[in-house]
């Protein structure tokens, strides 16, 4: 196996001469943990993705600490999905959203019984948010609210 890529070092180099990004370091802190309440084949799963996916007609993401959320119906026509994100090459996701938003793969897993069902809504956002404080105060609360409202039993998150 190859030496793991040191993204923290590369990010610092890529964004020079901006001040170095202050990465979160939770090492040594307790890790929250909720056991699965049911077998996977009975779980209601929600897809979450930070790769800037939105539906044609919704407001695209902007790149300056955009902490907004898009609700994407789990039965959306994937041909209507779009992508807006500054932090990674989006050409692949634009041609096939499943590269960062594997909704069609999850639908297959519902169809063959691997997972119970999909929550009505997938949640998408633009993860390149500079301010960790804004992630905690602005992005996260509406996500938790939605997951609870849709009685989600497993939240599958894909970054980009």
């Amino acid at each position: 196996m190859k030496v793991p890529i040191d993204y923290i070092v590369r990010t610092r180099e890529l964004y020079e001469p901006l001040p170095p990004y202050r990465w979160t370091d939770n090492r040594g802190l307790p890790i929250p943990w909720t056991p699965l309440a049911k077998p996977l084949a009975e779980c209601r799963v929600a897809l979450g993705a930070s790769g800037g996916i939105y539906v044609d007609g919704q407001q695209p993401f902007h790149f300056k600490d955009d902490t907004s959320l898009r609700a994407v119906a789990s039965d959306v026509d994937v041909a209507r999905l779009r992508v807006a994100h500054f932090g990674y090459p989006t050409a692949d996701a634009a041609s096939d959203p499943n590269c960062v938003f594997p909704l069609e793969r999850l639908r297959e897993m519902v169809a063959d019984g691997t997972i119970g069902e999909l929550a009505p809504t997938a949640l998408t956002f633009m993860g390149g948010i500079y301010s960790q404080r804004r992630v905690l105060r602005e992005l996260i609360p509406p996500i938790i609210e939605r997951l609870r409202a849709e009685r989600v039993e497993l939240f599958y998150l894909v970054p980009a």
Binding site: S50, H85, Q132, P159
Partner: peptide
């Protein structure tokens, strides 16, 4: 930062 944001979520 996507990885960090997703981890925090």
């Amino acid at each position: 930062m996507c990885h960090q944001t997703v981890g925090l979520v």
